[in-house]
Every structure is written in C-alpha cells, then in structure tokens.
Computed example of a mutant assay.
Amino acid sequence: MPIVPVNKIVTVSPTLSEQLMQLHIELEGNNSIGRNIKFRGPVNLGPEVMALRLQIDSYSYIARSSRASTSTIGSYCCIAHNVEMGMGRHLFHHPSISQSFFKNRFFMRFSGEIEDRDPDLDALGGDVNEVRIGNDVWIGAHVKFPKDVTVGHGAVIGTGTIITKDVPPYAVVVSGGGTRFTKNCQVPFFRRNNQRPA
C-alpha cells in the first residue's frame, strides 16, 4: 500500500488532492488528513472526512463528516456519514480526568512541556482506541466506536449504533433500547467465502 507521510493534521489543498487522485484516492473536499495514511486505491473520502493513522483498502468509501482515526478498513466497505472510529481514551483512575496532567498538547504553551508518554495509556495501546473493519462491511450513519473492536467480514451495523464489543462476521447489529446482534445476513456464496465478484 502507498504511504502518504503527514506529520500533522492538514486540510488537503486542491494540489495535494489532485496528486492523491493520481494514486487513486479521491477526496471530495475540505478533508483533513494526518499521521500517515495507508491505502490501496481506488478509495473515496467524502467531504469533511478526517483521516488520521488510517489504513483503508480498495473500493471502500467513507461518507461525509466522518472521522476515522487509528483504524483499519478492509476492501468493499461502505461507511455512511457522521461515523466516528477511533475515539480518544480517558483514564478515570488518575488524580484528575483532565489530560493537562499527563498529555499536555492542549496547554503546553501555558504550562510547559509534560512528558507525552503515559504508562497507563501505553498499556492500553495509546490515547485513541483501535477499530479494525473486515471486508465488505456496511456501517450506517452516526455509528460510534468508543472501544477497541473488530468488525468481521460482511457485517452490517445499523444507524446510530454504539459498538463496544467485537462484531462477528456477517452479523447484523442494530440499536434501539440497547445494542443487540440479530441473526446473520443471508449472503451470496462469494461473500461467505470472502471472494471478490468476477
């Protein structure tokens, strides 16, 4: 996969957007990217999408106003608008919930630099949770992933669902008075066997 190195979050200029289009990643406008993106094109990121530490495979798209951070997305995935993948972690057992005591990026100019490596966050894998999406997954609008989770191949996640545990392959997950798994999707043979259509 090509790697696009970006050291900080940047709003993508028309020039950079055109360069990325030649690599088969289409940005639809006012996108922000940062901290290394890996992709195998073609890929589409809708308007206002923010992508940080993202790996995304071919023929997948993320619709408008979504955020994908510290996430891996397989091929042929459909991700609707206003989805949040890779949300920040907060540690409740510290003397204060405020990040200013252990991850000082918001207030460094006022209080001076504080070591950015918190051992408790390191033990959890970093300050942002990790989301792993399989191939051929459909994620509805306004879905949130506040924990480390894996979504299996072929799964469908309904609009407005909050995913806090792993989703089995081909499961249908809906929300309404609590998240619940329904029966598995009826899928064609090539999807069940993780094959691409001819």
Score class of each variant (00 low, 15 high):
residue 6 V to F: 12
residue 7 N to M: 03
residue 8 K to F: 03
residue 8 K to H: 12
residue 12 V to L: 03
residue 13 S to E: 09
residue 18 E to G: 15
residue 18 E to I: 09
residue 23 L to A: 05
residue 27 L to A: 10
residue 27 L to P: 05
residue 28 E to F: 14
residue 28 E to L: 15
residue 30 N to C: 11
residue 33 I to R: 02
residue 34 G to W: 13
residue 36 N to Y: 11
residue 39 F to M: 01
residue 43 V to S: 08
residue 43 V to K: 07
residue 46 G to Y: 02
residue 55 Q to V: 01
residue 56 I to Y: 09
residue 56 I to K: 05
residue 57 D to E: 14
residue 58 S to R: 14
residue 62 I to V: 15
residue 69 S to D: 06
residue 72 T to C: 07
residue 74 G to Q: 05
residue 77 C to V: 09
residue 78 C to G: 12
residue 79 I to D: 10
residue 83 V to H: 06
residue 86 G to Q: 07
residue 87 M to Y: 01
residue 89 R to Q: 05
residue 95 P to E: 14
residue 100 S to R: 15
residue 106 F to I: 13
residue 108 M to E: 15
residue 109 R to T: 13
residue 111 S to A: 02
residue 112 G to D: 06
residue 113 E to P: 11
residue 117 R to L: 14
residue 118 D to V: 07
residue 123 A to P: 00
residue 127 D to E: 11
residue 128 V to G: 01
residue 131 V to R: 03
residue 135 N to T: 02
residue 136 D to L: 00
residue 138 W to K: 07
residue 143 V to N: 00
residue 144 K to C: 13
residue 146 P to R: 12
residue 148 D to C: 09
residue 159 T to M: 15
residue 167 V to C: 06
residue 171 A to H: 12
residue 173 V to C: 01
residue 174 V to W: 03
residue 177 G to C: 04
residue 177 G to M: 05
residue 178 G to L: 09
residue 180 R to Y: 05
residue 183 K to L: 12
residue 184 N to F: 08
residue 188 P to V: 07
residue 190 F to M: 03
residue 192 R to K: 14
residue 195 Q to I: 08
